[in-house]
Amino acid sequence: MRTIAELLADVPVLADLPPEQRATIAGCGHLAVFERDAWLLREGDPADRFYVIREGAVAIETFAPQRGAVTLQTLHAGDVVGWSWLVAPYRTAHDARAVERTHAIVFDGACLRDKCDRDPALGYAVLQRFAAVIVERLQRTRLQVLDLYDPASGT
């Protein structure tokens, strides 16, 4: 069985980190399996963890009165779920629900923040990689907001 540090070498956003930094991050993680419809994160909860999906799919959701749960995006193998653990006030912004049986690595956010505080090089490396994730999600969300396929756009 592969260690978490070895598994992180296959995670696109962390793959280029030096092995020793991946090992440090791996020290804050453990493996978990979520059945379909299990919650990984709940909106408003303290943001004390994040996930890397190994297999399966997770929906980022919010609840809208009259509409029910609205899926904003789905995340899949190799994707990171959750970044609120990194930024004060460390409060979870959206629900995250497994839409199928999902294997993930669960990371203790406080543990990794503490390691980043003590090792600025690690902290910078982690911030760089999470910034890339956040920017990519922001750009995708901007495209969604554009409503590209609106029939009124003529295409």
Partner: peptide
């Protein structure tokens, strides 16, 4: 296949095609 706006019954991917 991915959709920008999901319905409750949709079990597939949600997000723009670049995802």
């Amino acid at each position: 296949v991915t959709v920008d706006r999901a319905t409750p019954a949709w079990r597939g991917r949600v997000g723009v095609v670049t995802t």
